[in-house]
Nucleic acid binder design. Structure first.
Length: 385
DNA sequence: ATCTCCCGCCAGCCT
DNA sequence: AGGCTGGCGGGAGAT
C-alpha cells in the first residue's frame, strides 16, 4: 500500500487510525451506514439484531438510531425487535404532523389541563407511529411532558416519567423548536433550557445536552440539520435544513431530501462494516498480534466509512451521489451537473484506475470490487442521458 | 479547559 | 425468568 498512489485522505486516515478514533464510532456515521444498509427497494422489515450484527455495533446503539429515525418518520416500530423501513419519503408527513400538533398545542394552551391518562395513551401511539403526538402545551407548542420532565414530575408513575425523557420524544420536541420558531440557529444549550422549562439545573442540563448531541448527530447525518455557529457569538449551533436539504455546494442546485427514494435492489457500498471493534481498545491489554489486526481493520473501516458517508452526504456536506443515487434525483441532478461533471470525468477515471486500496478483510475487498463494477455500470448508463 | 459524545451499566417493562 | 428496551452519567477523545 505504501508504494501505491493513494488518495491523500486515504493515506492520511490510514496513518491516523493506528489508534482508536471515536469519530469512526459516531452515531452520525453509524446512522449513515444504517441508512445505506436499509434504504433499498428490497428492504421492508428490519431486525435490531440483524442491524447490530451487520453494522458491527451493540444493540444499544441501534436503539439510539431507530428512536431518532422513528421520530422523523423514516421507520416505524412493528413489534419487539422489529421495525419497518419507511424511508425518506416518510419525513414530510412526520414533519407536517409535528407542525400540526405544535400549532394545536399552542392554540389550546390556555384552555385546560388535559386528562393526563388519555394524552399519555395518545402519545404512546403517536410515538409508535413516529409522529403526531399530542400533549400538554409548553413553550413553542412543545410537549410539556418533556419540557417539565426534569421538574421531578411530582407523583407521576415511573413509566410515564421514563417516557417523558425518551430520546424519541426529545427528538420530536427538538425538531419542533426549529419548525415552529423563526430562529435561524439554535444551540444545544438553548434547546436544553427550553425543553427543560423551569427545571434547568446543572445536572439536568448536562444530561439533556448529552442527549441532544446524540440526536443532533443523527439528524445531521440525515441532512435535516447542519452544524454551524451563531452569527454573533460564534457559539456552536444547529441550523434547520429540513425538506429542502442542502444546495449542492458547487452548482447551487437544490437537492431536496424529499427526492430521496429507496435504493434499487443493489448492494449498497458502505454497509456491513461499521465499528467492528465495539469497544474502546485497551492497548495495554492487547497482544502485539491483536494490535496489528486492530490497526489493519481500523484502516479498512476508516476508508469504507468515509466513502459510505460521502455517498450520503458528500465530502463538503452537500449530497454527492454515486452509482446508487435514487432515480428521482438522478435526472434533475445529473442534468444540472452534466456540464461540470463532464470536465471532471477524466480525473475520476484516472483516479479510479490508479486507486486500488488493499483491504486486508476479504469482505471489504469484495465490497470494493462490487463498488467499482457498479460505478462502471453507472458511468455507462449515464453516458446515455 | 471545555466541548463533545461513546459506552455500557442497570432499572424497568415485556413475553 | 429471561430477554428487550433505553435512561443515564462517567469519563475519555477532540478541540
Amino acid at each position: 500500500m505504501a508504494s501505491s498512489p493513494l488518495h491523500p485522505s486515504f493515506a492520511d486516515s490510514a496513518c491516523r487510525h493506528l489508534a482508536y478514533s471515536r469519530k469512526q464510532k459516531s452515531l452520525g456515521l453509524l446512522c449513515s451506514n444504517f441508512v445505506a444498509l436499509y434504504n433499498r427497494d428490497d428492504v421492508d422489515a428490519i431486525g435490531l439484531d440483524d442491524a447490530a450484527r451487520r453494522l458491527g455495533v451493540e444493540r444499544r446503539r441501534i436503539y439510539d438510531i431507530v428512536n431518532v429515525l422513528e421520530s422523523v418518520g423514516v421507520l416505524v416500530r412493528k413489534g419487539k425487535n422489529q421495525y419497518s423501513w419507511i424511508g425518506f419519503s416518510g419525513i414530510p408527513k412526520a414533519l407536517q404532523d409535528l407542525k400540526d400538533s405544535a400549532s394545536q398545542e399552542s392554540l389550546g394552551q390556555d384552555v385546560q389541563d388535559p386528562p393526563t391518562k388519555a394524552l399519555e395513551e395518545e402519545e404512546d401511539e403517536s410515538i409508535n407511529q413516529g409522529t403526531d403526538f399530542e400533549g400538554e402545551k409548553g413553550t413553542s407548542g412543545l410537549d410539556s411532558a418533556t419540557v417539565n420532565s426534569a421538574a421531578g414530575s411530582g407523583a407521576k408513575p415511573a413509566l410515564e416519567q421514563r417516557r417523558e425523557k425518551s430520546l424519541g420524544l426529545l427528538t420530536q420536541n427538538f425538531v419542533k423548536l426549529f419548525i415552529t420558531t423563526d430562529a435561524d440557529t439554535i444551540s444545544l444549550d438553548e434547546a436544553a433550557k427550553i425543553l427543560l422549562g423551569d427545571a434547568h439545573d446543572a445536572v439536568n442540563m448536562r444530561t439533556k445536552v448529552r442527549r441532544l448531541y446524540d440526536i443532533a448527530n443523527v439528524l445531521s447525518s440525515m441532512n435535516l440539520i447542519e452544524k454551524t455557529h451563531h452569527a454573533d457569538t460564534r457559539k456552536p449551533a444547529f441550523r434547520w435544513l429540513g425538506l429542502e436539504g442542502r444546495q449542492n455546494p458547487e452548482t447551487g442546485a437544490p437537492v431536496p431530501i424529499t427526492t430521496f427514494a429507496k435504493q434499487p435492489r443493489k448492494r449498497s457500498f458502505g454497509t456491513e462494516l461499521t465499528n467492528v471493534e465495539s469497544k474502546r481498545p485497551n492497548f495495554n491489554l492487547l497482544s502485539d498480534e491483536s494490535k496489528g489486526r486492530a490497526a489493519v481493520l481500523a484502516a479498512d473501516l476508516v476508508e469504507c466509512n468515509r466513502m459510505a458517508q460521502q455517498l450520503i452526504q458528500g465530502p463538503k456536506g452537500g449530497f454527492v451521489f454515486g452509482p446508487f443515487q435514487p432515480v428521482a434525483v438522478k435526472r434533475e441532478y445529473v442534468a444540472v451537473q452534466k456540464g461540470v461533471e463532464r470536465e471532471k470525468v477524466s480525473d475520476w477515471e484516472r483516479m479510479a484506475a490508479a486507486f486500488r486500496p488493499q483491504y486486508h478483510n476479504q469482505a471489504l475487498s469484495d465490497l470494493f470490487t462490487h463498488f467499482v463494477e457498479a460505478w462502471n455500470s453507472w458511468r455507462h448508463s449515464t453516458s446515455f442521458l
